[in-house]
Nucleic acid binder design. Structure first.
Lengths: 213, 213, 213, 213
DNA sequence: GATGAATGAGACTTCATTCAT
DNA sequence: AATGAATGAAGTCTCATTCAT
């Protein structure tokens, strides 16, 4: 008795025999959607195109997602969950600030490679733009926390004002993302590496001397 | 005399100013297009909408622009010319670096208020994205020049490496633009002011002490 | 023993009552279909909706009915059989004309409450419209018979011509049905009562003085 | 100078030169729509079908009508206006009741020949059903007025109660319409004639002896 | 040159029916 | 026999572009 038959057996109580909603298919749709939305934006992306890329019928898409909008939102949400999860894990670690920041940067840039096309997709529609802005604010706040002691004092030395510190973080996050989202696919890994190195270097030259490798 | 000839005759009276009328109409279209593309992005903007906003017939639009894409490109180009013009003027001025930077920032933020919606429009389409990236690179290079002496040495003190300096400028430009392009119209002037102040403060706290008012 | 054989084995226990279960399921589908077709008409009614209302899977529906059209026809037929049965019973009763007519009216209006929504469903489709017309003709003929002696002479006094009598019955039947089929669900019982009372009164004022309560 | 050129000339003030919305085309669409809605009901009727029947492109239909619903409503409205107009004219005539009723009947049956298919169309959708019911109520009230003196007393003798009189009119109107709406096109003129004669006869046998020819 | 009605391709979505399980 | 996911044809509507006037 293999795993599949076990699944069917486990379901028999409620559902005698039938084909089940295929989690793998759902996932395939999400991936295709992520690519498509990223490549063309929300408007230009067609359901037909996603369906073709996934290898399923157009109609089937609507078994898994209510409509194009929901599909988009799910794509965004999936990524966001991933991000939040990783962030959480790093945050609660008990390590030196330099190490945590380094890990955080690693994690973010790795994720960026996966999601980068979607940034564009989120950008296209007014209502989704707000969504994106919200998420980015959350990220910025997380980073601020990373650099702040429980008592509110900044962890890293540096005589800059709170406003300037916030501004720097903000501009950094938005700037890197924008830069990446504008990058052509073929240049992506180069640009991401350059940015990452430059960021590390910049940090080590100013607030976090210990971070450079 | 049939009705056609009557019409033609009626136009001959205005022939003298025809060229001028045309330019004015072209300009009106460009303005309406800039607003529309900015407000809704390239896809969602309709030719019909632009025509209505301009008070010109749909068909007439095609007398002045080959198609929707070209109209968009012209809109971008017009803004770019304005920007380049202003930049040039500031560059060749013979003034202290702090003053020039302050002027430059003023000029840019003023322009941003006008063009900000268009950033989104440029972002939407893959081919226009590259356009945007190109322009932004040019801007960054200009700023770098602003901070560099003819002999290549940096004007402002600061022990940071060249790479870090470039990176900082890059991130600053992209970050501010992205931040603004994500801002809702009703928050725009507030956000722009905040960003501008924060930028001045940050500069005065690091490389350009004299810039703060 | 694979999963299929398990299932088959599981069903053998119920084999004895299988036929009965089937009939009951069929009947449940018919009821749900009657409601649905009535509420929304043939086109707007969906197989999925009927299935959901019945608690039976969509696919199963096709075990009992060839397709949507046949399902509709069966619904109509079921009602028609009920109607014919009741009519028959009243016809062969040996009672005064006034009493029989009163009973007939009671029976019809009671039935109308159940089936009224379906009238619309029958109306929607060209091919079913003829069906409806046929049935209504039959009803009219039955009523004519109710008022006619075996020798062909009219039971109730009244000097009207045969044509006028037929016309009156026709118009009465079609008129009442149309009126009811146009009534909103929430007004239904009120309207049905009003119509019934008015009909009784009208009859008692003209051809059947004895019928009024 | 023919009529067309006059029209163009008359328009020149506002609209230089251009194709105008074609009233004749609009009318053709309405006619095709009336037939289609009547033949198949609202749901089954397709925009594509109407377009094809009219010989124009599908998209053009949307230049003249906002959507399918509005097209339907306009069809109904056009007929209703015709009806109201004719009714009004007969109402204000100063003639004997028998003559007016005869005229009214002539007018209605003539109109029915034109509109009969639409009755079905109105019937299909819940929201349009109410529309239909409303209009029919109005018609009934008009007929009641036709048979009533300004002081409220009934014009025609007949000892029936007010309720019965109202009921009779109601049933008559609804009944005749329903009967006709169920009639196949090929039988239409026969059935309409039969109904008209039967109605005249019935009236002459009861309340309006003078009406029969 | 100007106009805007006409066009038709194509987008999203629904749904009766099929069929693997 | 039962299930419900899968299918794809078809429906409504939008919109960039054309072209008769």
């Amino acid at each position: 008795m293999n795993e599949r038959s076990f699944i069917y057996w486990g379901m028999q109580k409620e559902n005698a025999v039938a084909r089940k909603l295929d989690e793998e298919k759902r996932s395939r749709i999400l991936t295709a959607a992520r690519d498509a939305f990223g490549a063309e934006g929300f408007q230009k992306t067609t359901i037909k195109g996603i369906a073709r890329a996934t290898g399923i019928a157009q109609g089937t898409l609507y078994t898994y997602f209510r409509n194009k909008e929901q599909l988009f939102d799910e794509v965004v949400d999936e990524i966001w969950q991933t991000f939040r999860g990783g962030l959480e894990k790093i945050s609660i670690e008990n390590a030196a600030i330099a190490e945590k920041v380094a890990k955080f940067i690693d994690f973010c840039f790795d994720l960026l490679i996966q999601i980068h096309p979607l940034l564009r997709g989120m950008y296209t529609e007014a209502n989704r733009r707000e969504l994106l802005d919200d998420k980015l604010s959350v990220i910025c706040r997380h980073i601020e926390e990373l650099f702040t002691r429980p008592d509110g004092s900044p962890i890293v030395y540096g005589e800059r004002s709170v406003e300037t510190r916030k501004f720097n973080i903000n501009v950094m996050v938005y700037g890197i993302l924008f830069r990446i989202s504008l990058t052509k696919p073929e240049d992506l890994s180069t640009v991401i590496n350059e940015l990452k190195n430059a960021l590390m270097q910049a940090l080590s030259e100013s607030v976090l001397p210990g971070i450079a490798p």
